[in-house]
C-alpha cells in the first residue's frame, strides 16, 4: 500500500511485563526498523498519531492512559499491543488489572501475541495507517471527531445511548 504520511508513535506501558515494551522498541531498532519510513517513536503525546499501549490497564495507571489519549491530537489511532492489552491475557484474573486497553480508551487495532512479535506490530501499524487516513478524510469533511476518554467511559458504562459503532463516534453536522 501507499504510505501518504509518516505517523509518529507514542508508547506507554499500561502495566505489562515489559516483554511487549522491548518488542515495541525493537520494532524501531535496526532489524525491523520502521523508522526508515519516518515512523518515529516520540516521547510527546502532543506529537503522536499512533498510541501503542502495552499490557492490561491497572487501577493506578488508568488515569495516565486516559490523559495521554486525551492529549493526543485528532486524528489518532490506538493500538493494543500484546494479548494483555487486548483482553488482559495471563493477568486477567489479577485483582489489580481492570482488563485490556479498551476498558479505558477506544482501541482501533488489536495485535495479539505473548510477547507480541515485531512483525505483528509492523502489520498492526500498517493497518493503523489506513484507519488514520480514513479518519483524516472524514475529519476534513467535518464528519468525525474522536471520543474523549470520559465520553468513552460513559459509552461503555451505558450511561449515554449512542447510535454510533464501536470504532468511534460518527458526528453528523447539524
Amino acid at each position: 500500500m501507499r504510505i501518504s504520511k509518516s505517523p509518529w508513535l507514542l508508547h506507554y506501558d499500561g502495566s505489562s511485563c515489559n516483554g511487549c515494551d522491548i518488542e515495541v522498541l525493537a520494532t524501531t531498532a535496526p532489524r525491523f526498523d520502521i523508522e526508515r519510513f519516518g515512523i518515529i517513536n516520540t516521547g510527546n503525546p502532543r506529537h503522536a498519531d499512533i498510541f501503542l499501549c502495552t499490557g492490561g490497564v491497572n487501577s493506578q495507571n488508568q488515569d495516565v492512559v486516559r490523559q495521554i489519549y486525551d492529549q493526543m491530537p485528532d486524528p489518532k489511532v490506538v493500538l493494543a499491543c500484546g494479548i494483555c492489552a487486548c483482553d488482559g491475557g495471563i493477568f486477567k484474573d489479577c485483582y489489580n488489572i481492570l482488563g485490556g486497553t479498551d476498558t479505558v480508551i477506544p482501541v482501533d487495532v488489536y495485535v495479539p501475541g505473548c510477547a507480541v512479535r515485531p512483525e505483528a506490530l509492523i502489520d498492526g501499524v500498517v493497518k493503523a495507517l489506513k484507519i488514520l487516513d480514513e479518519k483524516n478524510e472524514k475529519m476534513k469533511r467535518g464528519e468525525y471527531r474522536s471520543l474523549t476518554s470520559s465520553e468513552y467511559a460513559a459509552k461503555i458504562n451505558g450511561d449515554v445511548k449512542e447510535a454510533g459503532d464501536s470504532e468511534g463516534e460518527e458526528k453528523t453536522d447539524a
Binding site: 506501558d13 491497572n58 493506578q60 495507571n61 493477568f91 484474573d93 489479577c94 488489572i97
Partner: peptide, 23 residues
Amino acid sequence: IGFVHRGLEQLVTKKDFGEMVYV
C-alpha cells in the same frame, strides 16, 4: 511506584503449581 502492579503473586490461588512457572 505502583504503575505496573498487577498482583500476580495472588494468582497462586487460581493457577496450579505447574502453570505458575509461566506466570
